[in-house]
Structures are given as C-alpha cells and as structure tokens.
Design a protein around this nucleic acid. Structure first.
Lengths: 227, 227
DNA sequence: ACAGATAACATTGTCGACAATAAGACTAAA
DNA sequence: TTTAGTCTTATTGTCGACAATGTTATCTGT
C-alpha cells in the first residue's frame, strides 16, 4: 500500500505523533476552521523543531484538513455546504465501487468477521443508546472493513487516508446523531447481505443510497447552523 | 482547490523545480522502477539541500510514484498488471463521475472550447499521423478539461494531481499507440456530444467504456513485455 | 562451514540558524 | 481623509550538522 495509517506503521516518528495530535485537534474543532497555522507557534507548542512539523503539515494538506499557499502559510479548511456536497458525491461513487469490489474479492472469513462485528455493534447500540461515540466508531469500522475488502490499493488509500478525516470532521462538528443511527445499522446489514451473496451490483446501489441518506442528514444540520 | 499543479502556482520554489524534474524522470523511466531513492545522492545531483528534496519526495509519494518506509528510505514504484488494473478500475469510475458532473456543470462556452480543441486535435492527428507525443498530449488535454468541468474540487485533485502521473507512467513506459489512436478521437467526440446534450448518464457510460478500452490496450502491451 | 551476535557504516529523522518572500505598519502626498 | 509607497516585521523556504535508526560486514563460537 502506498501509505499506511501512521498508527499502524512500525516505527513511529515525531512527525507521526504531532500529525495525529493536530489531526485530532482540527477534526474535533479545537483548532478553529479557517484559522491560520503558524509553524513557529505550533513547533513551540508541541516542543519540536519545524522540520517534523512541516512533514506533518504536508500530510494534513494531503487529507484536505489544511490548505497551504507557498510563502504565505497554511489555514485550516472551512466547512461549507458546497464542500460537503462535493465530498459526499465522491464518497457515494467511491464507496459504491468499494462495495462492488468487496463483493467480488472479500474472503468468506472476512465476511463472517464483518457479520460478527455488526452483531456486536447492535448489542452495544442497545446498551448505550444515544451515545454517538460508540455508534460513530462502529459505523467507521464497518465502512473501513468494506473498503479494505475491495483489495484495491488506490481506492483504499483515497478513502481511508485522504477523505476519511474530512468526512469525520463534518460528522463531528455538525453532529451525526438522532434517529438515523438505528436506521444506519439496518442499512449496514443489508449491504453485508448483498456482499455475502456476492451481488456486487446490489451492494454498490445500497451503499450509494446509504451514504446519500447520511449526506442529507448532515446537510440538514448544516442548514440549521447556518453557513 | 487543495493543491494546484506546481507549474500553475505563482511562486515557484526550489522544491517545486526538483519535484518536476524527478517526476518527469520517473514517469519516463530515466529512474528505473523499483530502484532505491537516495536522498543525499539526489540532493547532490540537483545541487540543493535535503530539505526541499524531502518536500518533493513527500509529493511524489502522494502521486504514488514512490513508496516510502520510515527510517528505511524510498523506492520508485514498480509497474504491474495488478497495479494497472486497480488504477484503471478507479479511473473508470472516477472519470465516469467526472463526465456526468461535467454534463451538469460545464458552461456552454467551456463546451464550445472543448469542441474547438477536438477539431484542432483532429487536424494535428492527420498531419502528424503516428506521432504518439501529440496524440498523448491531446488526449490528456481532453480528459483534463472534462475533469475540470466536473467542478468537484476533490475529484479534480484526485484525478489530476494524484492519479494522473501514474497513468502517464504506464502509458509512456508501455506505449499507448497503434490503431487505438484514431478510435480514441471518435470516442472523445461521442463523449463531448453527450456532455453537450446534457446527458450525464450517457457521458458517464461512454467515458467508462473509453477508459476500459484504453486499459485493455495497455494490458496487451504489458503481457507481451512480461511482468 | 554456518549461525548468531556485534560493530562499523550509511541513511533517514531532527535540529537550530540564515535567506527570501509576503504581510502589516507607517509615512507622505493628493 | 484616503491612497500610494516604503519600511519594518514576521513567516516561510532553505541550509548544514547532529542524533537515531536501519543495514551490512565482520567476528566469534559451535
């Protein structure tokens, strides 16, 4: 694979650590959208030199969390309805493809594991109803596994390493919760069944619908908050 | 847009220059696939320090031309049938989407310009029959404009900045030529017509077929050469 | 002779300082 | 008062050196 998630790579460098911290801070809104990134300031804050920090910034740019202008500096991205639309448009298509490929390429054992995962999520959902953290983690886990099941390295890279964090940022800052939660589980189940039946076309369709529904949900939140 | 092509950005830095040079060298095979990238060596070769070089390497990794392992170094990617398949699988879907969006979002003037471009290519094709360089440039130009016409920043970024160079590497090193050249023009024309008719669905379908045909063509070359 | 440990080497990661560029403040003229 | 220009300041880009890690060759013991 071109680039693995830092936490999954053997040697963890200083740049990796600061990357994860800043990534989290941006995604969760601790660093405000649109705010300027100051290299000296951040370097002092994390107590390291600018070299590993710049490495981290390069990767943050790669996953669309910041925008850099040469000789001018970097800014945290601003969320927008247009951006959300573009992002989810892409996700629909890409994860749809991932589903179709997963239906072709996932091993039976992988499918069984995925089914076990869903059952497990269903339980935790019942126990901790309304707590969006577990729900979100479970949802991401499901999507992750399907994407990995596609066995297409470029597709995996784009979805998991480049688009994922931005998707999460929209969800965290705009709130993915409410009645959609329970429905999402049913949709996951249906997708899994399609994959298990090796029906790539149906899996594709269901995943696209699933994401479209998710998009509409967030869009609603965005309009309430105001651009 | 998250990241523009270096040559299109106002301030051109040393890292940009060396990036373009190495990029070209890798794509055209001057630096052999699979060979190790030595930072000190390249720095000496291009007569600059390792800092801008590492910046360039980070971007090369981003467009999948090299693979880096922390503390171990970077290697130029190796071409493979599997890689080609994965890449074109993705391209089919993504450029199909781009076409559908282009049919929705391109301005009439843009469509007119694209038509003019195609006519122009037809002429140069007749004049310089068989010279694949112009053909390739023209083909890329067409695809570029359609992608830009989608008006989806993430889609544009992925296709133009991340996947493009690798696509070109396969084409350059394996040779896209022969009878496919003339047929490609007709396919471009058909795609353009669909876009002009605002028939996104058809444009999507035609583009996917167009790329699938292109893939089969290269695949054939790859099998002849041997893995 | 072969396997494992060890040491010498090379390469990458990180650091602090300097140079080049852009942003902002201040002055001066209309 | 506004605006254009200049100058100051701060930030980014680049550099050379050091530290940490990976790799390779050597040495030792069986």
């Amino acid at each position: 694979m071109a680039s693995l998630h830092p936490s999954l790579r053997s040697p963890i460098t200083a740049a990796d650590r600061v990357l994860l911290e800043i990534q989290r801070a941006i995604v969760e809104g601790d660093i405000a959208p649109g705010s300027k990134i100051s290299e000296p300031e951040l370097a002092k804050q994390f107590d390291l030199s600018r070299a590993p920090l710049r490495e981290a910034l390069a990767r943050l740019e790669r996953c669309h969390l910041i925008e850099r202008i040469p000789n001018a500096g970097a800014r945290v991205v601003k969320l927008s309805t247009q951006g959300l639309l573009s992002l989810y448009q892409l996700r629909e298509t890409l994860e749809g493809l991932a589903c179709r490929l997963a239906a072709e390429h996932m091993a039976d054992t992988e499918i069984a594991e995925l089914r076990a995962l869903l059952d497990q999520h269903l339980n935790t959902q019942r126990v901790r109803e309304g707590e969006s953290y577990y729900q979100e983690a479970g949802d991401l886990d499901f999507h992750y596994r399907v994407i990995l099941g596609s066995k297409n390295e470029y597709l995996i890279n784009i979805l998991c390493d480049e688009l994922y964090y931005l998707v999460r940022m929209y969800r965290v800052q705009l709130g993915m919760n409410g009645p959609r939660v329970s429905r999402a589980f049913d949709e996951h189940k249906a997708i899994l069944n399609a994959i298990a039946n090796r029906d790539g076309e149906l899996a594709d369709l269901l995943m696209r619908r699933h994401i479209a529904a998710s998009r509409r949900n967030i869009e609603k939140q965005l309009e309430q908050t105001g651009t």
